[in-house]
């Protein structure tokens, strides 16, 4: 941090866009962190990777669920009790968020991969849907589950 303060590339540099490296070289600062403004499309892009990681964990959990269910009524009853606990419900809620994130962000990615929706307005809109839509859909999903009495606290 203190290095950064002292790092104006040349004495006359008032842009703050240069850094002096430990070896004495002066280079333009990487545009990665401090110069580029955060944009919703960047958030959506990063969240898709996070989603893929979370979906991988989620798929492993679903495999565990199927394996338990296939082991018979007793094992399944224990799993059902765990699922109904606060921690269990929290995990299942997380899994629905991940599922909807995979759906919406995957759709955004596919549309962009076809070369469509790349103008600023559409890209922003799709990124916003991909970032916030999963939360909205997951809450609606759980409202439906509670309203139909399939799940209760």
């Amino acid at each position: 941090m203190s290095n950064h303060q002292a790092a104006g590339g040349t004495n006359g540099d008032r842009t703050g866009r240069y850094v002096r490296h430990p070896n004495g070289h002066v280079t333009p600062m990487s545009p990665f962190t401090s110069v580029w403004r955060w944009h919703i499309t960047m958030v959506a892009s990063i969240l898709f990777r996070v989603t893929i990681g979370a979906a991988t964990v989620g798929a492993a959990l679903m495999l565990g669920w199927i394996a338990t269910a296939s082991s018979g009524a007793d094992a399944y009853a224990k799993l059902l009790a765990c699922s109904a606990s606060p921690l269990g419900l929290f995990v299942w809620f997380g899994l629905t968020v991940v599922l909807f994130s995979f759906l919406l962000n995957g759709a955004r990615h596919l549309i962009n991969d076809m070369g469509k929706g790349l103008d600023l307005k559409t890209a922003n809109l799709m990124a916003r849907i991909a970032v916030w839509g999963p939360l909205v859909l997951a809450v609606l999903f759980w409202v439906a589950l509670f309203a139909t009495g399939k799940v209760s606290l």
């Binding site: 399944y76 629905t96 599922l99 399939k150």
Partner: peptide, 9 residues
Amino acid sequence: GLTLAGADF
């Protein structure tokens, strides 16, 4: 998920 949530064995 809507079908099987909370379903019995």
